[in-house]
């Protein structure tokens, strides 16, 4: 099951079994935003508390597959207490990690993908999130991994207005 081990890294299963920052926050001051993958029924709900350009608190709820829920959990841990500008960069870096580059598909060697996203993202540290890179080899699951990040982007856009 080597392919599966690439997809379901231990850190992913750990976040799936014990998701971080589960729960709700009072709205307001928090902002609630939700998203669905209509094809598979994945659901991600985020409560974002943004204050003075900082994501001061975040909670998540929803349901779905291990990839969508682990990605949500890892994301929540990565953005909590971070400046909004830094979070925006993180979103772009994660999306770059999840994008399929033709050269990579042809190579199919599972290289570490640190080239993804161009130079302005080169210094971004994804940490545990890099465990999700194996998802790229399973194209139908990419949308599972990116759902939480799209919801986050939507939430930040809405709070910025």
């Amino acid at each position: 099951m080597s392919g599966l081990q690439d997809l379901y890294r231990e850190i992913i299963l750990d976040h799936y079994r014990a998701p971080r920052n589960r729960g709700e926050l009072p709205v307001p001051p928090a902002h609630k935003v939700e998203g669905f993958n209509p094809l598979c029924g994945d659901e991600v709900i985020l409560y974002l508390e943004v204050e003075d350009g900082m994501v001061v608190d975040v909670r998540t709820s929803g349901q779905g597959c291990s990839i969508s829920q682990a990605s949500t959990s890892m994301m929540s841990a990565a953005i909590k207490g971070k400046p909004v500008a830094e979070v925006a960069t993180l979103i772009r870096a994660f999306k770059a990690l999840m994008s399929i580059h033709e050269s990579k598909l042809e190579g199919a060697d599972g290289s570490d993908g640190s080239d993804a996203g161009g130079t302005d993202l080169a210094g971004v540290r994804l940490g545990d999130l890099e465990a999700l890179q194996g998802v790229v080899k399973f194209p139908v699951r990419i949308k599972c991994a990116t759902l939480a990040w799209n919801v986050l982007q939507q939430g930040l856009d809405e709070t910025a207005v």
Binding site: M1, L7, G41
Partner: peptide
Amino acid sequence: DIHAHDVSQVADEEGICVRAGHHCAKPLM
């Protein structure tokens, strides 16, 4: 405690084609 998509993914590793999802019947889901 295991989502249908994860079940289907592991099954595929064994060469087994099973459907995961709402089967175009969301009122029933």
